[in-house]
């Protein structure tokens, strides 16, 4: 086990979209996060790397509001969101995807994306369809086309192949045009061609969109991010540009479990 070096001091930044301050998460006796500090600026593309069990997804869940931290605070766009339930995040312009695709398997692709759109617009309760729904359906169709699912609009999400589910997951996240996106391993289980399309799609997002990415695929992570944070064992180990991280011997040791050889 490596000696975890103290987390690098967070530089004060001008326009923080996400501020995580000494966040601790304990599951029973297990400390999943041991005091994380993280600042993310507007428009930043940040990749979080780390071996399984490092606490990456837990950190995401804290930022997205699915988990309330045991200690510490989370602020989004300057607003304290530590105890704000996840359902208030879309209104703050935040959208996320999950590591294991969470689609509504009994509903069609169009309906899945419709729910993402309707959830964001606050259209939750109508008991009958109206012209508004037709417009939302049209928007959902456009979103489905943008993630290459235009041919499967009426297919139940439960019948999709793994890669298509990831595309749908991404479609539901971008549907609301969020300005903060949390993507948990968007490329896992995708074929090479699908990965290239994914990178292309994420690259095409507007510059002001803040992107947080958990990714095991180094190629995807390094090609999409400007800054890389490495976590291990519930703590932040190091941070830097993709080039710095690639050449960091500590990272090699943590990530691969071997001494850096080259």
């Amino acid at each position: 086990m490596t000696q975890t070096t103290p987390a690098p001091a967070v530089p004060a930044i001008a326009d923080p979209v996400i501020q995580v301050r000494s966040v601790v998460v304990a599951f029973g006796g297990l400390l999943a996060l041991k005091g994380i500090d993280l600042d993310v600026t507007r428009g930043e593309r940040l990749a979080i790397l780390g071996p399984n069990g490092a606490g990456k997804t837990t950190l995401f869940n804290v930022i997205a509001g699915d988990i309330t931290p045991t200690d510490g605070t989370v602020a989004i766009k300057g607003r304290d969101c530590t105890f704000l339930p996840s359902r208030h995040r879309p209104r703050l312009g935040m959208a996320r995807t999950y590591q294991k695709a969470r689609s509504f398997d009994g509903l069609t692709i169009r309906e899945n994306i419709y729910l993402a759109l309707a959830g964001h617009r606050g259209r939750h309760w109508p008991l009958w369809r109206s012209p508004v729904d037709r417009r939302l359906d049209e928007e959902a169709t456009e979103v489905a086309e943008s993630v290459w699912l235009g041919d499967h609009l009426d297919t139940a999400a439960g019948e999709l192949a793994h890669g298509q589910k990831r595309q749908l997951e991404l479609g539901m996240a971008i549907a609301t045009q969020p300005d903060v996106m949390l993507l948990d391993e968007p490329a896992s289980g995708l074929s090479r061609g699908e990965r290239e399309r994914l990178v292309e799609l994420l690259d095409s997002l507007a510059g002001e969109v803040t992107l947080l990415l958990i990714e095991h695929d180094m190629e995807v992570a390094f090609s999409l991010s400007q800054r890389v944070v490495v976590m291990a064992d519930g703590a932040m180990v190091t941070a830097g540009t993709p080039e710095q991280i690639q050449s960091d011997p500590d990272v090699h040791e943590i990530y691969l479990g071997v001494e850096a050889s080259s």
Partner: peptide, 10 residues
């Protein structure tokens, strides 16, 4: 189908 996902959609 997925209450957690629904919550994160608002």
């Amino acid at each position: 189908d997925d209450p957690i996902r629904m919550a994160s959609l608002g």
